[in-house]
């Protein structure tokens, strides 16, 4: 991750994808308000507050809260289910029909998984689930269904530069 500040001697470069992600996360109107004004706002501003899962009153509480949140998710969610859900959110297809085909396939694949069996069983038994599947071992060749882009195989002669700050 690259972290920059106004005091940096030279700007670190990074592809943050703000012009793609902001309108999808907040809507086009709020993305306009943020990107076209460059205004500095607090997290409770109506332009930006929907970005945040949680806004904490004390600065020192931010990391502990995020860490506890991450541990709870890691312990109690299915890797495969999370991955396929993220995939569907990021790449839902170009139409409702295409989305239906994609999510039907995800439903079929996950529905017959060991994680789904454990999820249903633990729910019925009123206990915490212990999901056995891992994304590296139990996914399917179908996922991810989007084509992966590589600059190295591109016919376009890209050059990729990485800048590392000295200080």
């Amino acid at each position: 991750m690259t972290i920059g500040s106004d005091n940096s001697p030279s700007p670190p470069t990074s592809a943050a994808m703000a012009s793609w992600l902001l309108p999808r996360l907040l809507g086009h109107a709020k993305a306009n308000s943020l990107l076209l004004t460059g205004d500095t706002v607090n997290p409770d501003s109506p332009y930006i507050r929907d970005l945040y899962h949680k806004i904490l009153p004390n600065r020192e509480d931010v990391f502990p809260a995020a860490f506890e949140f991450a541990k709870e998710l890691a312990a109690n969610t299915s890797q495969l289910s999370v991955a396929y859900t993220k995939g569907l959110l990021a790449h839902p297809g170009d139409s409702i029909e295409e989305n239906h085909i994609l999510d039907s396939r995800a439903i079929k694949l996950l529905g017959s998984s060991a994680d789904a069996e454990e999820g249903v069983k633990s729910f019925k038994q009123r206990r915490q689930a212990r999901f056995p599947d891992t994304l590296s071992k139990n996914s399917s060749p179908w996922y991810p269904w989007v084509s992966r882009m590589s600059l190295l195989r591109s016919s376009i002669p890209y050059k990729v530069y990485f800048t590392v700050e000295n200080n």
Binding site: G4, S5, S19, L35, G38, P43, L56, V62, F69
Partner: peptide, 27 residues
């Protein structure tokens, strides 16, 4: 997911620096 301190100052100041919105995030 994003967690933030309520007092944080946030901006996407690219148009005030003359740069494209991919270049740099500011705190």
């Amino acid at each position: 997911f994003r967690f933030v301190w309520g007092g944080a100052k946030l901006s996407f100041p690219f148009v005030r620096r003359g740069i494209a919105p991919e270049c740099k995030g500011y705190a």
